[in-house]
Simulated scan of single mutants.
Amino acid sequence: MAWRGLGGLAGARHRWQASSWGDVVLPVPIAAAARSKVASLSKRAKVNGGRVNGGRLEFLPPQIPTRVERPPEDEGWVHEANLDGYRTQIIIDNGGVRLYSKNGRDWTTKYWPIALAVDLPYRTAILDGEVIVSGEQGASDCPALEAAIWNEPSRLVFVAFDILHLDGRDLGSLPLLQRKQALWQLVEPGLGKIQYSEHFEGSALALFRTVEKIGLNGIISKRADSRYRSGLSNTWLTARADATRIPIWRNKT
């Protein structure tokens, strides 16, 4: 589902804000109990080993956009805001729910409020997205993200922008817009811990200027008909609002 004009961007960015309960810092005993529950789920997945009802889903190295000076203006591209968060992959299977960093490290216990919030009506799935923390203006706040992971994890939100697997089906071979449609039906826009990253089909430059004004890092442009391919890609392009500033998440494991 695309943003309808630039006005849709303002509405979409408010969806990145945490739900009301997510803004509350849980008491230490409750937080510790929640971490313990998530750790047990992750441990159970490891104990079960490589087979859970015929096979356990493995981490898929992410598709990485190529950096460009200007976003593409020709047809056949869709554009999304660069949220300036930590790239994250959610894997759901009979072994439990696991969250991985962009380099494949298991960060489930760090992101335990998100792991506990995953409640999708499917047995298996792989979601690609970013973990963010929203600032006061609704835009993602990268400096606050590191602090929230260690001190206020209840503020963390996962914004999904792609789906790679669903109930035994490899969706990575489908065109991007078909994957986005499947993802939108699974993760409807809202104010929960698992949110949907909307895309924009209009002028890339207009969107770029808008996200720059509201303090986001830039935009990512993707070929509408592209398949998902791990590694550096020329069908995903990123144009930064400030080319001299390196987002923290790009240096994280």
Results as ranks from 00 to 15, higher is better:
F59C: 09
E80F: 01
I90R: 05
S230C: 03
W184M: 03
G129S: 04
V97A: 08
F158G: 11
V157K: 03
I163S: 02
G172L: 10
P72L: 03
Q185R: 10
Y100A: 11
A12Y: 00
H79C: 10
E152Q: 13
A148E: 12
F158N: 11
N82K: 12
A12K: 00
G96D: 04
S134Q: 12
N234W: 05
W249H: 14
P29R: 02
L164G: 13
G85M: 06
L41T: 08
A2T: 03
G202L: 07
W3Q: 00
L237I: 04
D167C: 11
G50F: 05
E198H: 00
I149L: 14
G192V: 10
R51K: 12
A33Q: 03
R223I: 03
A224I: 01
L156C: 11
D128I: 09
A10C: 06
E80V: 01
A139E: 05
L60I: 07
N48T: 01
L57F: 05
I220Y: 02
Y111M: 13
Q63N: 03
D93K: 04
L164M: 10
S134L: 14
S101W: 09
F161A: 01
Q185W: 08
Q89T: 14
D170C: 04
R67E: 04
R155K: 15
G54L: 10
M1A: 06
L156W: 13
I194V: 15
H165Q: 09
G8D: 12
A148C: 15
I163T: 07
F161G: 02
P62A: 02
K222F: 01
P189I: 00
K180P: 02
R123G: 12
V47S: 13
G76C: 01
L191V: 08
I132G: 10
L99G: 05
K110D: 14
K46F: 15
Q185L: 14
I30D: 03
T66Y: 00
N82E: 11
G7N: 09
I90S: 06
T124K: 14
S19M: 04
G54A: 11
R98V: 09
P72G: 03
V211W: 02
E146T: 14
Q137T: 14
G50A: 11
A117P: 03
P143K: 10
G55T: 04
P175I: 10
R98A: 13
I114P: 04
L174K: 15
A243Q: 12
G172R: 15
S134G: 15
G7P: 00
R4H: 08
Y228W: 13
G138A: 09
P153T: 14
N103A: 03
L127E: 04
S42A: 15
S197D: 01
S173R: 14
W107E: 13
D225N: 10
I214F: 11
T66E: 00
P175C: 06
I30M: 08
S20H: 05
P153L: 05
V78K: 03
L207T: 07
Q178Y: 08
